[in-house]
């Protein structure tokens, strides 16, 4: 077993991620946060949800658990760390990824299918991807990415909100993120966080118009495994 899908109290997407990884032929298991042992895995996915109720600030309580200290060590040692939605929020709250995720500009939770342009092909999930515009759903209240050094953010950005042809414009920015950023990675590309939910775009039956671009992203973990 190589990929751990972390369940914090309040995580809601662990089964969805597990199912999508199975669809992508990636072996994984759901691990409750207290039982997590980083040495046993070479990749970890932190799924979406409302860890510890997102009380205080989204992701902030989970960021201060021993589980996240172990995940930071994994990240530093070059192992793969993926954060989706609340998982992304936890990664920035714990300082493993740069920047911050603020409340959406209109201060509302927003569920919507969006297009994102792939800005980097050197990360664990985007390496070898054969498309540069993906269709994925977002569902969050705190997804406005912020970074005080826009130049750096531009370099780290992996996914940018765009139209279906890949044009990045403020019109396609659903939450007010700086530079339309939907997901970023560290310089090395082994740690990646994103607001869209790839696991929800992994099954033909339940994806908008049957598109399964999320599965293409998750298959990146297969490439790591090999």
């Amino acid at each position: 077993m190589r990929v751990a899908v972390i369940k914090f109290p309040g995580t809601t997407c662990e089964i969805d991620v597990y199912k999508a990884l199975r669809e992508a032929n990636v072996e994984s298991e759901v691990v409750r946060y207290k039982e997590f042992d980083g040495d046993k895995y070479n990749a970890v996915v932190i799924p979406g949800g409302f860890s510890f109720g997102d009380y205080l600030r989204a992701g902030s309580i989970a960021a201060n658990t021993d589980t996240m200290r172990q995940i930071k060590e994994m990240a530093d040692s070059g192992k793969v760390v993926v954060g989706i939605c609340n998982g992304f929020q936890i990664l920035v709250e714990s300082g493993i990824l740069e920047g911050a995720l603020l409340p959406n500009l209109n201060m509302r939770f927003l569920s919507k299918w969006v297009y994102v342009r792939v800005n980097r092909f050197d990360t664990v999930l985007t390496k070898g991807l054969n498309k540069n515009v993906l269709r994925l759903p977002i569902a969050h209240a705190e997804g406005r990415y912020y970074h005080d050094k826009p130049e750096l953010a531009k370099r780290l950005a992996v996914l940018l909100y765009s139209d279906e042809r890949g044009n990045v414009d403020e019109r396609y920015n659903p939450n007010g993120s700086v530079l339309n950023i939907a997901g970023i990675a560290n310089e090395e590309g082994n740690v990646i966080g994103m607001m869209p939910h790839p696991e929800r775009a992994s099954f033909k039956l339940t994806s908008q118009d049957g598109s399964i671009d999320g599965l293409s992203l998750l298959r990146g973990l297969k490439r790591v495994e090999a």
């Binding site: 809601t12 969805d16 199912k19 509302r108 927003l110 569920s111 569902a139 929800r200």
Partner: peptide, 9 residues
């Protein structure tokens, strides 16, 4: 759109 209507896939 204020509901997470796709959780559970």
């Amino acid at each position: 759109s204020q509901f997470d209507y796709e959780v559970g896939t």
